[in-house]
Simulated scan of single mutants.
Amino acid sequence: MKYTQLGRTGLKVSRLTLGTMNFGPQTDEADSHAIMDAALNAGINFFDTANVYGWGENKGRTEEIIGSWFARGGGRRDKVVLATKVYASMAADGAPPWPNHDLLSAVNIRRSVEASLRRLQTDHIDVYQFHHIDRNTPFEEIWQAIDVLVRQGKILYAGSSNFPGYKIAQANETARRLGSYGLVSEQCLYNLAERRAEMEVVPAAREYGLGVIPWSPLHGGLLGGVLKKQADGGRRTEGRAAEALADGAVRARIQAYEDLLDEHGLAPGEVALAWLLTRPGVTGPIVGPRTAEQLASALRAVDLDLTAELRASLDDIFPGPGPSPEAFAW
């Protein structure tokens, strides 16, 4: 495994981030533990989760599975850089949230940290992330709450997820004014098929020293050889990938992508991950394996060198928008 610094911090994290969203809904506890063991044995030390994972009536279940894995000992907790998130209501889907039991008020941040610590069976969270922007809570309040938790040793760093560039700037300028450390990472939707983050989010993250952690690096399976799998009678395409393939132009690009990689004898999913590892500012994409085989495929991407010629061909198929303001102005 290869490692890098998380943004401007001294914290070393693996170039792949283990995403745990499938633990519980898709992968049972025993298999989830096996995947985490395999990831740790392969050198992945950066694990990402969120308080709402488990979904529906089982919100919090994913954190509980990670907590039971930590409880098995063997130095598991000490070896892991643990990231979780706060924002959404933990009430069952369809139930209205009780006031102050969601978003980023100081009250909910404090309550949510304590609940996550209990589920995770740990005394601290390494990177505590805001899952979305809260338009009604000022960053002065957010940083006051975060600084208290840092002093208490319950969290070490703060990160963001799904923030636009201007909110990254606003958050860290406020932190600078208050003497707080500010955001150290940004999780964003970023992959070959979805490159809008290159316009504002990635430049803002680089300017303020945030490590970029792309989520959905295969765009819901779209970049994982979906057309070949369809032809071979594989798993039914759904969600983000199915919606995208309904567009004929997108389908043509995916076909060109798969044909290109077939010519080079390369696996589409591994190339999609390897491409992200070449992008400026990227710490490491989040991989969310449901099985040990999917984890093994992701690991191969770390050592996959993409030639300049291949990267240029990928840009031809999936051209990025370019930086702003040139992307939308003269």
Rank of each mutant, 00 (worst) to 15 (best):
26 Q>F: 07
293 E>C: 00
323 P>D: 04
243 E>Q: 14
37 D>G: 02
217 P>M: 00
99 P>D: 01
80 V>D: 05
315 D>C: 13
291 T>I: 10
65 I>R: 12
127 V>R: 03
292 A>H: 12
17 T>C: 15
110 R>Q: 11
66 I>V: 13
20 T>Q: 06
93 D>Q: 12
177 R>N: 07
27 T>W: 05
263 E>A: 14
267 A>P: 01
299 L>G: 08
266 L>G: 06
311 R>S: 13
167 K>C: 09
83 A>L: 07
122 T>I: 09
254 I>K: 06
242 A>F: 09
13 V>I: 08
220 G>M: 09
196 R>D: 15
284 G>C: 10
242 A>S: 13
127 V>Q: 03
10 G>T: 08
160 S>G: 15
311 R>W: 03
306 L>H: 09
144 Q>F: 04
177 R>V: 09
62 T>I: 06
195 R>E: 08
211 G>H: 03
20 T>L: 10
91 A>T: 14
113 V>E: 01
325 P>W: 13
136 N>C: 02
248 G>Y: 01
202 V>Y: 00
235 R>S: 07
12 K>W: 11
226 V>P: 12
138 P>T: 13
10 G>I: 08
92 A>G: 01
40 L>S: 12
281 G>K: 02
217 P>H: 01
117 L>S: 08
196 R>V: 02
76 R>W: 06
242 A>W: 14
35 I>H: 02
155 I>K: 04
23 F>P: 00
176 R>N: 08
154 K>R: 15
65 I>Q: 14
130 F>N: 06
202 V>M: 05
270 E>T: 13
303 D>G: 03
203 P>Y: 00
